[in-house]
Amino acid sequence: MEYILTIVVLIAIFVILSSSYNLVIGYGGLATVAHPIFYALGAYTSALLGIHFGLPAAICVLAGALVAVVASILLALSALRVAGDYLLIASLGFQLGLLQVIKNFEFTGGPGGISAIPNTITGPWRTPAYLLICGGIAALTVWLIARIVHGPYGRAITAMRDEELAFSALGRNAMTIKVVVFAIGCGIAGIAGGLYAFYFQYVSPDQFEVLHSAAMLTMVVLGGMGTTMGPVVGAVVLIAIPQAITFLNLPPAVMAPMQGIIFTTLVMLFLFLRPAGLVGPLSRDRMAGRTALEKSSGGVAE
């Protein structure tokens, strides 16, 4: 039971990660692969503050998010000032470089990472309590992102993603929106990092490798990029499936490459068969629009 609850906590953390990644890459159209490093910044900041200063966990997590926000603004300002496309390269450099720094500093624990992060909740209710906290924050994240991407602000994000030049020429400040969307997404990833650190009480650099952005991207694509619930579905499916397979008692030689095979197969299947993802509302919206048009005009296309 404890094991399954732990998986659910992990799912909640990945819902936070994939939803925030979706805000940046799916809604904002900002191509970045640095999401794991902002996750790491949150995790390491809260771990270090918890160990060395004994601050309350909530303060540590918020501080971690703040560090992620500041770092993301610095990255966005330098990369986006040149041109949008540079963000991908800059984020890759930032991700790889900063992780090397983390691996090589003594106070971050080097390649071995940090263990003995203070236990904030003890007793038999520890995991259920974390489940409640992480699940609550995951729900809050999904709600907050839904609030951001709908209404006037969301319309601005969508328009910017669709046609940035036209958007700017209408008087809209695309740069500010990009920086804000990027900072919000990365800050939320920082919160996920803090939750991870305090629940598992152990962080190591290989949890934040650049490859993990591929896992997050898989969740987003499979669930439905640019949809509110897509990343939630994606995170649940892609964490539950590999875990479920461990119950099959397959030999280690088969088990080891299993996860990679599943992720790759799923991405390829979805790209070909259902590019809109499991949730995929884009096509639904379009159909709704077409029906509305036909109804009101009796076939406008003369």
């Binding site: 319309r155 328009a159 669709d162 958007f167 008087g171």
Partner: peptide, 19 residues
């Protein structure tokens, strides 16, 4: 803006858009 409706295309375009 190709993923938006006609109305949304217009709503984004006033000189001042506090949203």
């Amino acid at each position: 803006f190709t993923t938006m409706t006609v109305m949304e295309n217009l709503l984004i375009a006033p000189r001042s858009y506090p949203g």
